[in-house]
Simulated scan of single mutants.
Amino acid sequence: MSRFAALVEVRLRPGIADPAGTTIERSLPALGFADVTGVRTGKAIRLEVEADDADTARSRVEELCRRFLTNPVIEDAEVTVEAAS
Rank of each mutant, 00 (worst) to 15 (best):
I24S: 01
F4R: 05
F4A: 00
R11V: 15
V79D: 01
R67P: 06
E82W: 14
V73Q: 02
V81G: 00
I45Y: 12
A17I: 12
L69W: 08
R40M: 10
V49L: 11
A17L: 15
E62A: 14
A57K: 02
D35N: 15
V81H: 01
G38V: 06
L7K: 13
T80C: 02
V39C: 06
L31K: 09
A54G: 03
A77Y: 12
F68A: 13
L47E: 04
E50S: 11
R11A: 15
A20P: 00
D55C: 03
S2M: 12
E82L: 10
L64C: 07
V61S: 01
S59E: 14
F4T: 02
A77W: 10
G15C: 11
R67M: 09
A44I: 14
A54H: 04
F68E: 06
D35R: 13
A17E: 14
T22L: 11
A51I: 11
L47P: 05
P29C: 08
V79L: 09
A30Y: 08
T56G: 03
V36C: 03
D53C: 10
E48H: 12
A57D: 00
D53R: 06
P29I: 05
R13E: 02
S27R: 05
D53S: 11
V10F: 08
A84E: 10
S27K: 03
G42C: 04
T37D: 05
R26V: 09
T41C: 11
L47R: 06
G21A: 08
E25M: 12
T22D: 12
S2C: 02
T37F: 11
L47G: 04
A34E: 14
A20E: 13
A83L: 14
V61F: 07
V10C: 03
L69R: 05
L31Q: 05
D76E: 14
V81S: 00
R66E: 15
E63F: 13
L31R: 07
E82N: 06
V39N: 02
A83G: 03
V81A: 00
D52L: 13
E25L: 10
I24Q: 02
A77K: 02
P29K: 03
T41D: 00
A84N: 04
R66H: 12
A51K: 05
A17N: 03
S27L: 14
A30N: 10
R40V: 14
V36I: 15
T23L: 08
G42K: 01
E63D: 13
T41M: 09
I16F: 12
A83P: 06
T37W: 10
D76R: 07
A44N: 11
I74F: 04
I45R: 03
L28P: 02
R58V: 00
F4W: 14
E63W: 12
R3C: 02
D18P: 04
P19S: 04
I16L: 10
F4C: 02
L7D: 00
K43H: 08
S59G: 09
N71I: 12
I24E: 01
E78W: 08
G32Q: 06
A44R: 15
A51Q: 05
